[in-house]
Design a protein around this nucleic acid. Structure first.
Length: 479
RNA sequence: GGCGCGGUACCCAAGUGGUAAGGGAGAGGUCUGCAAAACCUUUAUGCGUGGGUUCGAUUCCCACCCGCGCCUCCA
């Protein structure tokens, strides 16, 4: 098997994965800020992270992944106040929605999903450590990190912060800082705002400190991989490095992996452009979970992904092709015996699939390996060169791919129902479908094709596709 | 301006110093009562532009153009 190599933002090159604790990969994943429903762009990043962990698991590695939920920040405080509820109550709804959305997209739950507000103590501890080392200062009740004390600042984003002058920019926080580059570790409470009473005074945590504190609590002072969207590289991850490494004296994350953004119809997604989609928006429009997951995983994570109506159609058709193939394998009858060539095709596909992923999660390459297999096996079937005993081998290959792709085995409607999305019009149940198919069979026997075609059309209007096979049996599926 | 990602057929997209994977879509064909599914053929003498290195470059070097992101607590 090929060596696993990932692109490390820190070195800006491909590096072999070498976990600190052999056999186990410790990953920290920047999760969502739960002030609203997560959008499709967020899920592009989360799908990348899911592919990452699933691939590592497929290699027999243990994965310890921690994902945070940022459940306290300016927006949350403001919105909760507007709604007249506590931060906890306000975020609960969006956390539940996020977990449901994850399940809908077949995103495996990380080993730990942790909330910032459950870890204020850990953050206070970390801030105290920084304080003892003389890396902080206080101003109007807030505590800041003094960037000037961390010479390596900027090593991740390669941003030369030397030019940024204090007061040169509008400070969104409207707190007084000595240097524009400095960031808040702890924010003094504003009147009427929710705050924590702690050893370092009343207030609430800054954004960056939660990730450092929680990552180190669950994964140790040095983790193997830290992931997030490209936009987090600066300042968020840069600040995490500054805080963590200054406090411990050890490297914080050995490898940083960042997912490129998703754009919509060639444009940046934004609320003002009206191209801002949540998952539920897409489900309401009739998009299937498998379609969305496939589209998000089919473009390698370091490439910008253009999310368009056309690309959704293409993704849906691709998933359909794969599913049709599996159905054919399982339902069609083949002549007895086996064909050594088929075994080789399966071996090659499995090898290539894995090699693609090992090469910085090149999902496009891996998918091509699968489609090569699909085409070659279909051809062999059509030519009568595929035998009964070949089927289990190919089914096994497909079942080897799906723990990573996770788009083959689910029934989309069931999936949606399970996570609480109810389609606008209910599907025709299986009994009704079978009954109509039987009527059509009778008509066909009489060679009353007008009638049989009417029935087929009737089913098609209800989203049922029929496939007549040579032996007279009829396969059907929901569109 | 700085940092980063990218510009490959109608669309999505892989890729290598030696002559362009895969998927979708279109066209034609096989199969079928007709469909669906599947298969076959077909759609880039060319991979943003201009130079250079080389026997040979889409792949290496230089310059330039264009798109996008970050540099403002947006994945």
């Amino acid at each position: 098997m090929n060596e696993i190599r990932f692109h490390n933002t820190l070195s800006n090159r491909l590096e072999a994965l070498a976990p600190l604790h052999p056999g186990e990969v410790r990953i920290y994943t920047c999760g969502p800020t739960v002030y609203d429903f997560a959008h499709i762009g967020n899920f592009r990043t989360f799908v990348f992270q899911d592919i990452l962990r699933r691939f590592l698991l497929s290699r027999g590695l243990r994965v310890m992944q921690v994902m945070n939920l940022t459940d306290v920040d300016d927006r949350i405080i403001q919105k909760a106040a507007e709604a007249g509820v506590s931060i906890r109550e306000y975020t609960e709804k969006y956390i539940e929605a996020f977990l449901a959305d994850m399940a809908a997209l077949n995103l495996q739950a990380p080993e730990e999903i942790v909330r910032a507000t459950d870890h204020v103590e850990d953050m206070v501890d970390l801030i105290e450590r920084l304080k003892e080392k003389g890396l902080t200062y206080e101003s109007e009740g807030s505590i800041y990190y003094r960037i000037a004390k961390f010479p390596e600042y900027g090593k991740l984003s390669k941003i030369d912060v030397g030019g940024m002058k204090a007061g040169a920019r509008v400070d969104n926080d409207r707190y007084e800082k000595d240097d524009a580059r400095d960031f808040a570790l702890w924010k003094a409470p504003k009147p009427g705002e929710h705050f924590w009473e702690t050893r370092i005074g009343p207030g609430r945590p800054g954004w960056h400190i939660e990730c450092s504190a929680m990552a180190m609590k669950y994964l140790g002072e040095t983790l193997d991989i830290h992931t997030g969207g490209v936009d987090l590289t600066f300042p968020h991850h840069e600040n995490e490095i500054a805080q963590s490494e200054a406090a411990t004296g050890h490297p914080f994350a050995r490898m940083w992996m960042h997912a490129e953004h998703l754009i919509i119809e060639g444009e940046k997604m934004s609320k003002s452009l009206g191209n801002f989609f949540t998952l539920r928006d897409l489900f309401m429009k009739g998009q299937k979970p498998s379609t969305i997951r496939y589209l998000l995983l089919s473009v390698p994570y370091r490439r910008q992904l253009n999310f368009t109506g056309d690309s959704l159609k293409q993704a849906e058709a691709s998933v359909e092709r794969l599913r049709n193939f599996v159905t054919r394998l399982k339902t069609e009858g083949f002549a007895a015996g086996s064909n050594a060539k088929i075994e080789k095709l399966a071996d090659k596909a499995e090898e290539d699939f894995d090699a693609g992923l090992a090469d910085d999660l090149n999902t496009a390459f891996s998918l091509a390996a699968i489609f090569d297999l699909v085409r070659e096996v279909n051809t062999a079937m059509d030519r009568g060169e595929f035998r009964q005993q070949d089927a289990p081998r190919i089914v096994a290959a497909m079942q080897k791919f799906d723990p990573i792709l996770a788009v083959l085995n689910d029934d989309d409607a069931d999936k949606l129902a399970k996570v609480g999305f109810v389609p606008k019009k209910p599907r025709m149940n299986a009994e009704a479908v079978e009954a109509l198919i039987e009527q059509r069979n009778v008509a066909k026997k009489r060679r009353d094709f007008k009638k049989s075609d009417e029935i087929r059309q009737q089913l098609a209007d209800s989203g049922i596709i029929l496939e007549d096979s040579k032996d007279g049996s009829v396969r059907w599926k929901y569109k």
